[in-house]
Simulated assay, not measured.
Amino acid sequence: MSLAYPRGVATPEQMAGKTGLEIMQALVRGEIPAAEISGPMRFWLAEAEEGRCVFIGEPDESLRNPQGTTHGGWALALIDSAAGCAAHTTLPAEVGYTTVETHGNFTRPILPDGGQVRAEGRVINRGRTLITAEATLTDSQGRVLAHGGSTLMVLAGR
């Protein structure tokens, strides 16, 4: 997937009967539209497997804070997206989730011209009603830029 893939809201027909993993893999293939946020935030889902998702982000000048580096909210949105989508891969069909809490730690500045950022989300624990997941953002040299975690609530019948 890339920034060129269609964005929008998936129809109920596109989601019906699919597990969370099947939905995430369909997003990677471009069969289901990516979330609208992926355009202005300049990131997309690149990989999905059980309990793990990877997003790729391309920060640019439009995401700068007043000091000229990429705004921390962008990194936190990537942490939340990667952790949440990793959690979604563990859910059966017709079951959704929502974020209860997300936190992040920023370890290096993310520069608007610093190249692609990889955000890897992993499920830590899958409970009946809560899932905990973490995500790590790295640059092209594998250096950690930020890391954090999310607590997600399972929503049956969604």
Score class of each variant (00 low, 15 high):
residue 60 D to N: 13
residue 64 R to Y: 01
residue 106 F to S: 05
residue 71 H to C: 07
residue 84 G to E: 06
residue 36 E to P: 02
residue 112 P to K: 14
residue 33 P to A: 03
residue 1 M to W: 01
residue 72 G to I: 06
residue 97 Y to V: 08
residue 32 I to K: 04
residue 147 H to C: 10
residue 72 G to V: 03
residue 29 R to A: 15
residue 148 G to L: 06
residue 158 R to L: 07
residue 151 T to K: 14
residue 148 G to K: 05
residue 139 D to Q: 14
residue 33 P to Q: 03
residue 24 M to G: 02
residue 146 A to W: 08
residue 100 V to I: 15
residue 152 L to H: 09
residue 157 G to Q: 04
residue 7 R to N: 00
residue 122 R to V: 12
residue 144 V to G: 08
residue 20 G to K: 10
residue 34 A to K: 07
residue 151 T to E: 06
residue 107 T to W: 12
residue 48 A to F: 04
residue 63 L to D: 00
residue 25 Q to C: 04
residue 84 G to T: 10
residue 39 G to Y: 01
residue 56 I to T: 01
residue 26 A to S: 14
residue 104 G to I: 10
residue 38 S to H: 02
residue 105 N to R: 15
residue 150 S to P: 04
residue 81 S to C: 09
residue 147 H to A: 11
residue 109 P to S: 13
residue 136 T to E: 08
residue 13 E to Q: 15
residue 131 I to R: 10
residue 43 F to Y: 15
residue 113 D to R: 15
residue 36 E to N: 13
residue 50 E to C: 01
residue 87 A to N: 04
residue 83 A to H: 06
residue 125 N to G: 11
residue 138 T to E: 12
residue 59 P to S: 02
residue 154 V to E: 02
residue 55 F to P: 01
residue 112 P to D: 09
residue 90 T to H: 02
residue 89 T to R: 10
residue 151 T to Y: 09
residue 16 A to V: 00
residue 20 G to T: 11
residue 62 S to M: 03
residue 18 K to H: 10
residue 124 I to G: 06
residue 44 W to E: 00
residue 28 V to L: 03
residue 104 G to E: 10
residue 104 G to H: 09
residue 137 L to K: 04
residue 54 V to G: 00
residue 98 T to I: 06
residue 73 G to R: 08
